[in-house]
């Protein structure tokens, strides 16, 4: 017992050899130990627990990283080539109708129709706005007709008076 206590003291003074420390490790791993030394059991348990900690991730060196990069590039290129081929094979037939809008050749008929309809609507608005002054001229004209009627009446009255 005294020897063990001496060894513990030696351990805390950092004077023990690796062999002696292994002996202490084994001693504290036992189920039954001296109750006076029980508080130190956790310390040696901690060291044993730490020894079992493993590096859990996969280590990759640069050549593996490069290989992986080339593999990814190959996969992505193959996918891109596949899409390109698909679009070439399933290419829609060339449309025959087209319109030139703002100097560009447009083959989308729906777009062209919509564009034309918008333009016609705009034209209609402009025409309505332009014809508004003519309306007031018409009103003046009908007003003048009433004045003409007064003149006729006046002429008839003059004739009767004569």
């Amino acid at each position: 017992m005294d020897e063990l206590n001496k060894l513990i003291e030696k351990y805390f003074r950092a004077e023990t050899s690796i062999e002696e420390e292994k002996f202490l490790n084994n001693y504290f791993a036992k189920e039954a130990i001296d109750p006076e030394l029980e508080p130190y059991r956790a310390l040696f348990c901690y060291f044993n627990e730490e020894k079992s900690v493993k590096y859990s991730k996969k280590i990759q060196n640069k050549s593996e990283t490069k290989k992986q990069m080339w593999f990814q590039i190959t996969i992505f290129s193959a996918i891109a080539a596949g899409f390109a081929l698909l679009f070439t094979v399933l290419k829609p037939q060339q449309p025959t109708d087209y319109a030139i809008i703002k100097g560009k050749r447009i083959e989308n008929t729906a777009y062209v129709e919509q564009f034309a309809e918008n333009k016609l609507l705009k034209l209609n608005t402009i025409m309505n706005r332009s014809l508004k002054p003519l309306k007031s001229v018409n009103e003046v004209h009908s007003g003048m007709k009433q004045i003409e009627k007064i003149n006729i009446t006046r002429e008839k009255l003059n004739e009767l008076h004569k």
């Binding site: 900690v53 493993k54 280590i59």
Partner: peptide, 26 residues
């Protein structure tokens, strides 16, 4: 790697950073 990881973890006191450190050293 295990020894390096344990040392890194003890110094950095952070598991994820210790993983990264081992990777970087490698």
């Amino acid at each position: 790697s295990d020894k390096l990881f344990r040392l890194a973890k003890s110094i950095l006191r952070h598991e994820e950073e210790a993983h990264d450190a081992v990777q970087e050293l490698n």
